[in-house]
Design a protein around this nucleic acid. Structure first.
Length: 291
DNA sequence: CCTTGAACCTGCGGGC
DNA sequence: TGCCCGCAGGTTCAAG
């Protein structure tokens, strides 16, 4: 479920209830995720206090009082639930973390594509999961100059390129399609042909991510953030999962194609490819989505 | 290096 | 009703 807005929404919802709490007990119900839980997970968490929760890309970092961090990724179907009530175990609740105030943090992940790890103090930059991540899309470092340089060498289509976490983090299958719609770029455009629209692409990515953040992320199937609440940005999608429905800007039917094994949605009228391969592109339409 | 496709899992909805 | 197929928010390998 998680792209940047869903992960960040999870972080924000968990922080007030977890900050300052001490972990009293850790129970692994099932450790064989795609990337298994560390064998010493319970040992390394028990007795520690949580001082902060940070986010890097689609990862959450639960910072502990000894400087270590619990690293978590939600994969496709993961979620955290922080509950004050006696927790009734659900299928696919894989990790239970009991707190000193009687509350419980539960990691739930049907498909088991998620991951939990513990990073030693100061070990973030050398951690294999974090080491090769690109800039945060909402940071200044995701600049026009950076993006142009990064796209120069990329021959592949722009949409899957935007989902490459080495180029920029946090953008997944939903927001790649949504962002390209907002800046009027066709998803099959070769990445190196989009340089002149780098600024528009950056603005569109930020706009779609920020809009989703305001709505608490998107809930497609079962995403809930830390309080068991669903997001509602899915009601504001311009193109995602809207194949055959009218474009909110021009009324043309939204189309779906497959790229790198993933579904891509776009408006064939608002998102046209340039005909001119070497020269200037014609002006792309800048329709704004309603909603 | 870049790109693509398969693999990893479970659940759900559609078609027959 | 039941079975089979395809598809789902991501990442990581292997291979071209």
């Amino acid at each position: 479920m998680p792209e940047l807005p869903e992960v960040e929404t999870t972080r924000r919802s968990l922080l007030p209830g977890l900050k300052g709490r001490t972990i009293t007990q850790v129970e692994l119900k099932r450790a064989d995720l795609r990337i298994p839980f560390p064998k010493d997970l319970a040992k390394r968490l028990t007795g520690r206090s949580i001082t902060d929760i940070r986010r890097r890309a689609k990862y959450l970092l639960f910072v502990l009082d000894n400087g270590d961090s619990m690293l978590a990724h939600l994969g496709m179907s993961g979620s955290f639930l922080l509950t004050a009530k006696k927790h009734t175990l659900r299928t696919h609740d894989h990790l239970l973390i009991a707190l000193d105030n009687g509350h419980m943090l539960v990691f739930h992940d049907p498909r088991r594509f998620g991951l939990i790890d513990v990073i030693k103090k100061g070990g973030e930059s050398s951690n294999a999961f974090l080491a090769h991540l690109g800039p945060e899309p909402l940071d200044k470092s995701f600049s026009s100059a950076y993006l142009k340089k990064a796209l120069e060498k990329r021959k592949g289509p722009i949409k899957p390129t935007l989902m490459d976490q080495r180029l920029v983090v946090g953008v997944g299958n939903i927001y790649a399609s949504e962002s390209l719609f907002l800046c009027g770029i066709h998803p099959t455009t070769p990445a190196h042909e989009t340089l002149q629209h780098a600024d528009a692409m950056i603005a569109a990515i930020r706009k779609s991510l920020n809009a989703a953040l305001k709505s608490g992320g998107s809930t497609l199937r079962d995403f809930t953030h830390g309080e068991g609440v669903t997001g509602y940005f899915q009601h504001h999608f311009n193109v995602y999962e809207r194949e055959g429905e009218p474009c909110v800007a021009c009324g043309t039917e939204i189309e779906m194609i497959t790229q790198a094994g993933r579904s891509t949605y776009f408006c064939p009228h608002c998102q046209k490819r340039s005909r001119d391969k070497s020269g200037k592109q014609k002006k792309l339409r800048g329709e704004k989505a309603k909603n």
